[in-house]
Design a protein around this nucleic acid. Structure first.
Lengths: 146, 146
DNA sequence: GGGGGCAGGTCTCAAATAAAGACCTCTGTT
DNA sequence: AACAGAGGTCTTTATTTGAGACCTGCCCCC
C-alpha cells in the first residue's frame, strides 16, 4: 500500500488541505520549542463548546444577548459573554449597541463569520447524517468484552 | 429584512444544514428538561482539542501509538490514549494489535472516519485561508480603546 | 420618592476537565 | 543483572466551565 492510499482506494483530493495541515504538524514535530500551527490556532478557538452553536444561531438572523440566551438554554451568562467577546475579537461577529432604555445590544455575523457558514454546514451535515452510525458504534463499543 | 436573509443578500443554500441544526436548538429551547441535539452530540466529541488533529494525522497513513505521539508533540500520553479510545468508541478509527515483541498497536481510520475527511478538509481549508484575517482582527481588537 | 423590573452584563466560588510526568509490565538485549 | 522500548495507567496540579448572586442605569407604578 502506497502513502496517500487507504485500503487501496485513492483518497479524495479535497483532502489536500488536510495534507497541508499535517505538514504544518510534521514541520513542527521536527523542531524544538513551542508548537505553532495557524490551523490549530483557528480551530482551537471555534472548536470550543459554544462557538459553532453561536454562529449557527446567528446565521438565521442577528440577535440580542438575551435572545441568544433563550435560544441556547444551557449556556451560562458567563460563557455567553465570553464566547461572544472571543468571536468578536476574532472578527467573526460584530456588536452593536442601541441607545434604547435600557440599552440593547445586538450581535450579528460579519462577512468573515458568514464565510465560515459553508464549511461549517458541511460538517453539520456530516454530523446529522452520520449520527446514527456513531450512535450505533458507541453502543457496540460499550457492550464489547472488557 | 426577511428571515433567511442577511444584509439583503440571500444566504448560500449550503446553509440549509445549519438551519436544520438551528431548528433542533429551537425545538429544544421550547421544551423543558435536559438539552438533546444529535449534531451537538457529535460535534462536541470531535470538537475537542485533539480529535481533528488526530484524524488529520491518521489521514495520510495508519500509525502506531508512539508515532502519533511523536507527530503531535504536545499531547500528553494520557490525552493521546483517551482521544484514541473516544475515536475508536465512536467508530471513527480502528485499533489493531500486532503480536510483535513488544506488541505494537496500529490505529487507522475506519470508513466512517474517512467520510469525515471531506467536511473536515473544507473547515481546515477555511482556517488556513482566513488565518491572516483572524490574526489581524485580534490585533485590532487588542489595541482598541477600553 | 420607594419599590420593582429589565437589559446586559460582572464576580465569586465550586465542580469538571486537561496536562505533566512518575510509574508499570512484559519481553529482549548486553 | 541492568537497561531499553512499547503502550499504556495513576496521581497531582492547573485550567476551564458552570451556577448563581450581585451591579448599574433608567423607567414605570403607586
Amino acid at each position: 500500500m502506497l502513502p496517500g492510499e487507504i485500503k487501496g482506494t485513492r483518497m479524495s483530493n479535497a483532502v489536500s488541505a488536510i495534507e497541508r495541515f499535517s505538514r504544518y504538524q510534521f514541520d513542527d514535530s521536527q523542531s524544538v520549542g513551542p508548537v505553532h500551527c495557524p490551523v490549530r490556532d483557528v480551530l482551537d478557538r471555534i472548536g470550543d463548546k459554544w462557538s459553532i452553536l453561536m454562529i449557527a444561531t446567528l446565521a438565521t438572523r442577528p440577535q440580542r444577548f438575551s435572545e441568544l440566551h433563550r435560544a441556547i438554554r444551557d449556556i451560562s451568562k458567563r460563557m455567553l459573554t465570553q464566547t461572544l467577546r472571543d468571536l468578536e475579537r476574532d472578527g467573526l461577529i460584530t456588536r452593536h449597541v442601541f441607545p434604547t432604555k435600557p440599552p440593547s445590544v445586538e450581535y450579528r455575523l460579519s462577512p468573515l463569520g458568514q464565510s465560515l457558514l459553508d464549511p461549517m454546514a458541511s460538517l453539520v451535515d456530516w454530523a446529522d447524517r452520520r449520527y446514527s452510525d456513531i450512535h450505533d458504534a458507541r453502543a457496540r463499543f460499550d457492550r464489547a468484552p472488557v
